[in-house]
Design a protein around this nucleic acid. Structure first.
Lengths: 123, 123
DNA sequence: TATTCTGGTTACCATTGGGTAACTACAAAT
DNA sequence: ATTTGTAGTTACCCAATGGTAACCAGAATA
């Protein structure tokens, strides 16, 4: 998922894209926002992502220092995710993407077809 | 490459990510910048991208209104790509990603290993 | 006693992504 | 007459992605 050729680039920008340039990570970061969110919450807030992929993405985001994972030694387990300083500093960028998209998007709203097959950010 | 489930979301942000949330598109947009660039130039400036994938990405970017394609009726063919207004408006976002990464990136520079296997933005 | 609850992980399998090489058209140059 | 150059496209094939279902621990609840 994370492309090592990107992360090993001598270009800082390319490395950044290697870190956050995929479709799930911006969504996850946006959903977490300034909150503290549990794994199960993320799994249900973001439909169409499987637990497997969600776990992968969270692990990578943690490795890249974008979020913090707090595991409570309880049973049943409880794990909370929140953005690190680096992750929080990324939020304004997501906001400017929203603005940009709102300003220039061509097709405004899709027709009411198959709701099940759509992704929601539900942020 | 472009995920239809994202593009059909009722969430504007998710749709935006469906459009530009992959690894090649930000790179391509960054490389083009304010210039006018030919297909072959892109192909040689961006190593490790194949012509096939490059052509795909360019087509999608054009469909999404991020760039304009100017084909001259010559032989051998000449095609020039430049960012549209929407594409140009995306450049500041890429700049803020660069800033953000410069500020928070953990591993600063990779060792001198296999240069061939790296991606360069060469912007 | 059996079920539930949570945050994963693992094995298995189908789908997809993406690379490579060959091919196109035609003009100009060798 | 053959090669070169451009911007792709197509067929083919292998590797990687990602989904599904099963499984785990161990306490609390019914």
């Amino acid at each position: 998922m994370r492309d090592d050729r990107f992360c090993a680039s001598n270009c800082s920008f390319t490395r950044a894209i290697g870190t956050i340039g995929n479709k799930w990570k911006p969504i996850i970061i946006n959903v977490i926002g300034t909150r503290t969110v549990r794994f199960g919450q993320l799994d249900s807030i973001i439909p169409l992502i499987s637990r497997k992929v969600l776990a992968e993405q969270l692990k990578e985001l943690e490795e890249d220092g974008l979020l913090e994972r707090l595991a409570y030694k309880e049973l049943p387990p409880r794990v909370e995710y929140k953005l690190s300083e680096k992750g929080l500093a990324f939020l304004p960028i997501l906001e400017s993407i929203k603005e940009w998209n709102g300003k220039y998007e061509v097709a405004p709203m899709p027709g009411e077809t198959d709701k099940k097959s759509r992704v929601t950010c539900a942020g």
